[in-house]
Nucleic acid binder design. Structure first.
Lengths: 178, 178
DNA sequence: CCACACATGTAAACTGTTACATGATTAC
DNA sequence: GTAATCATGTAACAGTTTACATGTGTGG
């Protein structure tokens, strides 16, 4: 299982960075499969340093309080091993599907609202993925982005095609039950 | 945010059940958006009971040690409210994409292995979704299953079409670098 | 000068999983 | 009789989020 510390290692495998930069890298470049908050970032950085997977080189950002981290050979070995041990699992937790699943009792407006909200979010995610520097990525990196795009586009298309239909269906059903 | 206890409430909104049955309902009928382990199930059931969202009727399973739970009116109100408050978020944590993203250093075999493993898992998930009793579902329930199917099929198709291509690309690249 | 981005960190709370522990029933 | 399924539960741990706390640099 990829933990936050492994993802951080991955972020630092590209180039050295300070904590803030690591966080931004993960929350933009890796946004299609991970995210981090400060609360897990800094403890994980300390842990990685203690293990020898990364080193801390002196602050490199002028007077701003900044620690710069770089991956070590040991860190690279650890990352490679993680990849070799990794399964191909994906864990999805969808508030959207849960809410829709139970939305019948709350009326068709709720279902429609949820579908529209999800469509909007998918749109934004697609834009963000398209804004990534696809040209300068490695083959495998680009592959993950294109996979994420394909999946999101399919979801969006489904919502656009079927969203209206279900609203009508619920509406008719509730009218018939009166 | 839908927590486990809300999902349990949703499961019990269909019909009364004991803990074991609730768990199976979630891990089969709701598998496309949630899962539960025993460690969270039983404490959550107790919490719901204490709050008055569910009641415990005497054991209804012969001599087997079994507690049967049923949703109350309060429970139904709570569930409806959850739906109304719910956002349309989806949180994905993909070991698959993480591993592929960082797999370049580990060689093309790893990338291919991951893609094949993911394809197999998607296939299984699709089968499981198709095995659900679509005919006897409500409109919104069926909608979630079809959405999940659309997304998984798109993922599988992408992997089938592009999986080979990327293996070749990495291979060529690594040969060129020699 | 004010707001926003940069930068680091901690503490409490929460949520959930894994593993363990136990035992009855059912199907082969 | 033995393996699988049914059934309940706890303890330890893992992982994370939220909120707090603090301060600098930059652009308008």
């Amino acid at each position: 299982m990829f933990e936050i510390s492994d993802i951080i290692l991955g972020a630092l495998s590209k180039s050295p960075a300070n904590g803030y930069q690591v966080r931004r890298r993960i929350n933009s470049d890796f946004a299609h499969f991970q995210s981090v908050s400060t609360g897990s970032l800094y403890p994980a950085l300390s842990k990685l340093k203690a293990r020898g997977a990364i080193t801390e080189t002196g602050s490199a950002n002028g007077s701003l309080d900044s620690r710069t981290f770089a991956i070590t050979d040991l860190g690279r070995t650890m990352l490679r091993q993680k990849v070799q041990e990794a399964g191909a699992g994906e864990r999805l937790r969808s508030d959207f599907l849960a809410a829709v699943y139970f939305s019948e009792s709350a009326g068709p407006e709720e279902t429609v609202r949820l579908i529209e909200e999800r469509a909007g979010a998918l749109n934004q995610e697609i834009r963000a993925l398209l804004a990534l520097p696809l040209q300068s990525m490695t083959n495998t990196e680009r592959f993950t982005v294109r996979y994420a795009l394909a999946v999101r586009r399919a979801g969006l298309e489904f919502l656009r095609h079927e969203g209206r239909a279900i609203a009508t269906a619920i509406d008719i059903e509730s009218r018939n039950n009166r």
